[in-house]
Each structure stands twice: as C-alpha cells, then as structure tokens.
C-alpha cells in the first residue's frame, strides 16, 4: 500500500513536471534587462563637475537626478501592448546603481517595435501617501502644491549672471495656477484642493494658498525601436536620459530667467516638460543567453 502511494505520487510529479514543460513550449518567454543611463552631450553624466554648457549658454553642473518612471509598456510588432511588470513605478537615482537596472521576466516571445512609459506618475496614481518607504517617500510633493510626488529632482548649480555658482533645483511635478489677484495672505477653500483627491489620507487643511487649480504635468514617452524577445535569451535595452535636452528643444531654458526653484513656477516647469519629449532614447545593447 505504502509503496503504491509512493509510486503514484512520483508518477504525478513526473506528469505535472511534464505538463509545465509543455506549457512553456506553448508560451515561450524571454527576459529583458532594462538599464537606465544619464548622459550629457553624449557622454555619461559626470556629477559635481562644472563642465557643461546648456543651449542658453549657462555653464552648469549636475549633482544628482532622482525620478520616477512608471506605467511601463512594451509594444509588439502587431501593435499589441504587453505590460511587462506588476510594478507601477520605478524610482531611479543617479546615486543608486541598483535603481538603474530593471529586470523584466516571462515576456512573450516575439518582435517588438516600441517601449512606452510615463515620465513621473500619472494623475490617477500620483496621490499623497502612495509611498511610505524611502527613497520613494523622500520624493513627496507638498500637498499645498498639488500633492503626490516629484516626477524628478535634478539638482545642480549654474554660473549666474554675476559669475557665481548658484544652486538650481530643476524639480518637476504637479503645477499650480495661482490667483494673482488674491492677496498673498488670502486662501482658497480646502475642497478646491481636495476635489482633485490629492489630499488622500489627510484631513484637508482649512486654509490653503491662493491656488486656483492644479496642473498635471506628467507625460507619456514613446520610444520607437525594434527589439526581439526570445525564449531563453536576455535582451538588454537601455533608456537614455539626455540631460542637456531638458534645457533645449521647443524652448531654450535659461536658468538666469527662472532661478533656482521652479516648483511654484508652472511656466518654467512647462518649458522643461515640453522639452522633455526629446529627452529620452532607447538603445538595444545586446541579446544573449539568459545564463550569461
């Protein structure tokens, strides 16, 4: 009796092993290793060294870049979208090497033609309280300014008109439209802020800044590039952030005009964001056996 049970269970294990093998053949899957790089003028970003000049002629340095990449999607040759991960957002930090490498597993085999993501966090996801753990939580965007999280903090210094190295915080997130006719000391009703649901988890403050409306600034990025995913193979892709492009393109962004802080200057953020459409590029770096 004992022996026969043993035999049956062995048989069962053998069968199920067999079946899962079979499934794999029907649904072959591969892997993508997605690297994130930050470059200036085609070279890897060198932090804290005053060696860059932007389109406006500002000499500048970059100390660190911290940002969110979210809603990652892969587009197949036939236009079908693949959601390669359950992770809604990735925090990327020039100081944290591990944050610059994303592994996507169990991807359907085939030919792909594009990668899509949201720069920052989309309106629905960008709520205060979403992240409680650092480093993500350190990206919080104050509720008075719209709540949620910074899409990006790009911190550095530029040589200002007086020849001094002045700090700039190129911080992007939800913008505000201020009531310019209101006195600085006047406020709007809390519901005007929380109608947008950005105060989730908080009791709405009874007094607010004279903000008329909040402006969602995150944008979708589409990077067209052919790549393949093959069963048992690892495809290495790289998303490149071309830092200098934040400051050129549709607008020539001049630090002397906007100064060191822009979280409360929608006009400045808008310039950056519109330039942002040309900031990213996708490269296929290699394809190899998963084992390698």
């Amino acid at each position: 009796m004992y022996k026969s049970i043993l035999f049956l269970s062995l048989l069962f294990i053998w069968f199920s092993a067999c079946r899962s093998n079979h499934e794999n053949e029907q649904n072959p899957s591969g892997e993508i290793q997605l690297g994130i790089s930050h470059t200036v003028d085609g070279n890897p970003l060198a932090t804290d060294t005053l060696q860059y000049v932007n389109a406006a002629g500002n000499h500048y340095l970059v100390s660190e870049i911290q940002w969110f990449l979210s809603d990652l999607k892969l587009e197949r040759e036939d236009g079908k979208m693949v959601e390669p991960t359950d992770d809604m957002a990735y925090y990327i930090d020039t100081d944290l090497p591990e944050s610059r490498s994303i592994v996507l597993r169990n991807l359907p085999d085939g030919n792909y033609r594009a990668l899509h993501f949201t720069f920052g966090l989309n309106e629905e996801n960008n709520r205060s309280g979403l992240f409680v753990n650092p480093p993500e939580s350190f990206m919080f965007w104050p509720d008075y300014l719209g709540g949620g999280y910074h899409y990006m903090k790009l911190n550095g210094k530029w040589i200002n008109a007086d020849g001094l190295a002045e700090p700039f915080n190129f911080h992007l997130g939800i913008g505000q439209e201020y009531d310019s006719s209101a006195l600085k000391s006047s406020y709007i009703r809390p519901n005007d802020c929380c109608a947008a649901n950005h105060c989730e988890g908080y009791k709405p403050p009874s007094k607010m800044m004279p903000v008329r409306a909040f402006i969602q600034n995150s944008f979708e990025v589409t990077l067209s590039q052919n790549f393949v995913v093959r069963h048992g193979m690892k495809t290495k892709l790289e998303i490149e952030m071309k830092v200098e492009n934040w400051f050129r393109g549709k607008h020539v962004y001049d630090h002397n005009r906007w100064g060191g802080s822009i979280m409360q200057q929608q006009a400045a953020m808008k310039q950056g964001l519109e330039n942002g459409l040309d900031v990213f590029a996708l490269h296929v770096t290699s394809i190899s056996d998963v084992a390698k």
Partner: peptide, 28 residues
C-alpha cells in the same frame, strides 16, 4: 491653527521657508 497652517505651508514650499526637501513633511 491658522498660524500653524501658515507655518506648514512655509515649511513645505520653495518660495516659503523651504525646509521640506531635507526635513520632511506630510509625505515624510
């Protein structure tokens, strides 16, 4: 209170006292 709230706004705004990037706030 009104004064505390105003202080909170100052604490968490760049054009205010600008403390939050290093010293936290509602989200930290």
């Amino acid at each position: 209170t009104a004064s505390e709230l105003n202080g909170y706004v100052l604490f968490t705004t760049e054009e205010g006292a600008d403390c939050f990037h290093c010293h936290g706030g509602g989200g930290n």
